[in-house]
């Protein structure tokens, strides 16, 4: 069963006035364990497609299935709950909770899931160790570098044990070293733990690591190619 399946997915802004076709009839199938980049120039619809797959935006037509569940018609509250349990997000601007430490940011998702406290503590430590932040666990985001913040964001995204992690331009604000470091971590997670990653990016460093590249232009998928990342 594919982790992500979109069918004729379309998102049109201002349909009644001057329509802007952000995504046009996109058909996309992502299998478990894939490491996929959605690429294309600015305004090509990468982020919109990612938002539709993540249930942050609603399609004008078409459907999105995550792990076999159609999320297109879900109510807002069910969709929020679905995201909590099935989808991890990594944002371009990290979007950590500034008043929480790295540890608390990662634990927060599991607390929302009402998991056992001991399990939360153990898993938080494991995740932060895996992203190389074992010595920065109690540091707040403002005291972390951009690369470190994004690694916390990855650990947070992994915390809910999602079916897929959606990452919107995750390296856009990072220098080369931090970006390569982050990509190493994500590649390792994908390879060792079979975590499925779907990026939107125009960063060649990310594209080079991806095993599958989906190219978009003017809202439509124009190319879908696989190669060794």
């Amino acid at each position: 069963m594919p982790v992500v399946q979109t069918r004729q997915l379309t998102r049109t802004y201002n349909p009644d006035t001057i329509p802007v076709h952000a995504v046009r009839q996109a058909d996309l199938c992502i299998e478990e364990g894939e490491f996929t980049s959605i690429v294309g120039p600015s305004g090509s619809g990468k982020t919109t497609l990612l938002n539709l797959i993540g249930g942050l935006d609603r399609p004008t037509s078409g459907s999105v299935h995550i792990n076999g569940t159609d999320i297109t018609g879900m109510s807002d509250s069910k969709l929020i709950d679905f995201r909590l349990w099935h989808i991890g997000f990594v944002f371009q601007h990290y979007n950590l909770i500034p008043v929480f430490s790295a540890r608390e940011n990662v634990a927060f998702i599991m607390l929302l899931q009402n998991r056992d406290k001991d399990e939360i503590a153990r898993r938080t430590d494991e995740l932060l160790d895996e992203v190389g932040l074992e010595k920065r666990k109690d540091t707040r985001p403002a005291q972390l570098s951009g690369g470190e913040q994004q690694r916390v964001a990855v650990a947070r995204a992994l915390a809910c044990e999602p079916k897929i992690i959606l990452a919107d331009e995750p390296t856009a604000n990072l220098d080369t070293t931090a970006a390569m470091n982050l990509l190493d971590i994500m590649t390792r997670m994908n390879r060792e733990k079979k975590v499925t990653f779907l990026f939107s990016t125009h960063d060649q460093r990310v594209i080079d690591r991806a095993r599958r590249v989906v190219r978009m232009l003017d809202g439509a998928i124009v190319e879908d190619s696989c190669h060794e990342g």
């Binding site: 929020i80 909590l84 349990w85 997000f89 944002f91 979007n95 998702i109 947070r156 809910c160």
Partner: peptide
Amino acid sequence: HEIGMLISVGMSR
């Protein structure tokens, strides 16, 4: 942004 992020990652309204 932050509240949007909280709702994105699964914090109920």
